[in-house]
Lab assay of single mutants.
Amino acid sequence: MEVRTIKVFTTVDNINLHTQVVDMSMTYGQQFGPTYLDGADVTKIKPHNSHEGKTFYVLPNDDTLRVEAFEYYHTTDPSFLGRYMSALNHTKKWKYPQVNGLTSIKWADNNCYLATALLTLQQIELKFNPPALQDAYYRARAGEAANFCALILAYCNKTVGELGDVRETMSYLFQHANLDSCKRVLNVVCKTCGQQQTTLKGVEAVMYMGTLSYEQFKKGVQIPCTCGKQATKYLVQQESPFVMMSAPPAQYELKHGTFTCASEYTGNYQCGHYKHITSKETLYCIDGALLTKSSEYKGPITDVFYKENSYTTTIK
């Protein structure tokens, strides 16, 4: 009895394709271990004539594949690729409408935090270190965002349907971005203890939790000093293409032309909904596939993004 075979390709990165001759009487799992086709788990399936010449994702289970996976995804987590594939199996079914010149995501599976993050990423200057993220990001900007969303979920250790947080998501993504040249110098002034300067680099240099107003941050924000008295913390120097200011959701007025974009969060910790506000020729609110415009805006804002380049204080 002759062994019926077909020729397929296996890959971990969709760049390096490895030619395989597979036995049609055995499952993919018996031949390769966990195997995925377009995100779908085909591990328990036997090869079919229609699979001839198709590319299958496999887990990096030998040295060659491990090197290829690390170079593309910059992670050695053995569960990463499987999590990416199972997320992709959902995100490829989502709709990605162009809204006001940006790629958004039609609401499904509690994905409003991903839509808000995706919209924000198209408006701030950011370059990702893992080629996987950078490639998928370019495709997302062009309207094909399924891979990018699935990668975000995998890097953030999230599953489809789980509630997510924009600030946490951005923080994970910033860790995989090139923020080497970003720098922030802060000064804390206390009447009792004097003053202390701190220099922050990388992710810490672009994120701040405690106030939404970048102007206020430049002037000074009140913080408790270690001595128990009130101290003032203010920005001395900022070198970065953008800054992200966050605070627990509270009524906040966004003035046209003073910011790049913002995240609105309605609801409580267990259950809520994100919308995205962007400042173009007027203010726009993007909620999944829905767009509304207004000249002014007041609502429960939790993150505001500002364009920056270089700032030095005039406070002496």
Rank of each mutant, 00 (worst) to 15 (best):
F305G: 00
N16K: 10
A132M: 03
K93F: 11
T55R: 11
C271A: 10
Y138K: 15
K127P: 12
L235D: 00
E204H: 12
K280H: 10
M245V: 00
V243T: 01
Q98M: 14
L254H: 00
S171I: 12
T313Q: 15
L235F: 01
Y252P: 02
R184S: 15
V166A: 08
L173Q: 02
Q238R: 01
E144W: 07
L179S: 04
H276L: 09
Y155R: 02
T11S: 10
Q30P: 07
K92P: 05
K191E: 15
L65P: 05
T91N: 05
D23K: 14
A205V: 01
S79T: 15
S25F: 14
N129T: 09
A205S: 08
E68S: 07
K316T: 07
Y138G: 14
H51N: 08
W107Y: 05
T282V: 12
L212Y: 01
M207H: 07
T260M: 14
G101T: 05
Q197W: 06
P47Q: 04
L153W: 06
P34R: 10
I15P: 06
S213W: 01
D135A: 09
A108H: 05
H90W: 09
N157R: 10
Q195T: 15
A231S: 06
F56Q: 05
A40E: 15
V203P: 15
T55M: 08
C156F: 02
Q134F: 06
P78C: 10
V21F: 15
V12A: 08
S171V: 13
A205F: 00
N111T: 03
Q175F: 05
T10W: 09
V22T: 10
A250F: 07
K127R: 13
P248H: 11
T314M: 14
Q196D: 08
G29T: 03
L291Q: 13
T103N: 03
D41M: 10
L81A: 06
Q98A: 09
L17G: 06
S295N: 07
N187D: 07
M207Q: 08
A145L: 03
C156G: 06
N268G: 15
L235R: 01
G220Y: 00
E144D: 15
S104Y: 00
K54S: 13
V189F: 08
G299T: 00
N61S: 14
S104R: 03
T312W: 09
V3F: 14
K316F: 15
G29A: 08
Y72H: 13
N89Y: 13
L179G: 02
G257H: 07
T226R: 15
